[in-house]
Simulated scan of single mutants.
Amino acid sequence: MIDSPLRAASQPDQATCGVCRLHNDQDAISHFEIHREPLWLLRHHPLPAPLPGWLMLDARRHLGGPIDFNPEEAAGFGPVLQRGCALVRELTGCDRVYAIAFGEGPATCICT
């Protein structure tokens, strides 16, 4: 893989990452946290949430998204994403659950 200066420049470092700041603020994260695992944190989207059932699935370490998963994160991503999506469906009664990946974190489950 070619290491591009554009790729490195597009990712915030840990000191300026909003997800890392939230994870390190125990008072703030306690209002949003649903489930914590060694590699993953499932949380509510901060208000105002764009849609009912919008949840965030964050890696517990700083990374730029799924492209940066280590082997353990890659192996665990599917099962924890599936459980989060099942929770959205159970709590909202929605017909369909979507998973969207953003550059600021690995995934988001939303319900429509």
Rank of each mutant, 00 (worst) to 15 (best):
Q11M: 14
R96D: 15
H62N: 07
V80K: 08
I2F: 11
P12M: 06
A28L: 09
G65H: 04
A59M: 01
A101T: 11
D68I: 06
H62G: 12
G84I: 02
P79F: 09
W54G: 15
R89P: 05
N24S: 08
N70P: 13
A101W: 10
N24Y: 11
L91R: 06
C20I: 06
L41P: 10
E37D: 02
I67V: 15
A75E: 04
N24I: 15
E90M: 10
L47Q: 15
G53A: 15
L57T: 10
F32D: 04
R96Q: 14
L51S: 05
D58R: 15
H35G: 06
E72I: 01
A59D: 01
R36P: 01
P5I: 06
W40F: 10
F102I: 03
A8E: 11
M1S: 12
H62L: 14
R21W: 07
R60Y: 14
L51D: 07
P71T: 13
D58P: 05
L22Y: 04
E104V: 06
P79Y: 05
V80D: 00
G78C: 15
N70I: 03
L55Q: 14
A8F: 14
H62S: 07
A107H: 01
T108I: 11
H62C: 10
Q82C: 07
I29V: 04
C111W: 03
T112L: 02
L55M: 15
G76F: 00
A75P: 02
A8T: 09
A107V: 03
D25T: 10
H62W: 14
N70L: 02
P50A: 11
I100R: 14
L51G: 11
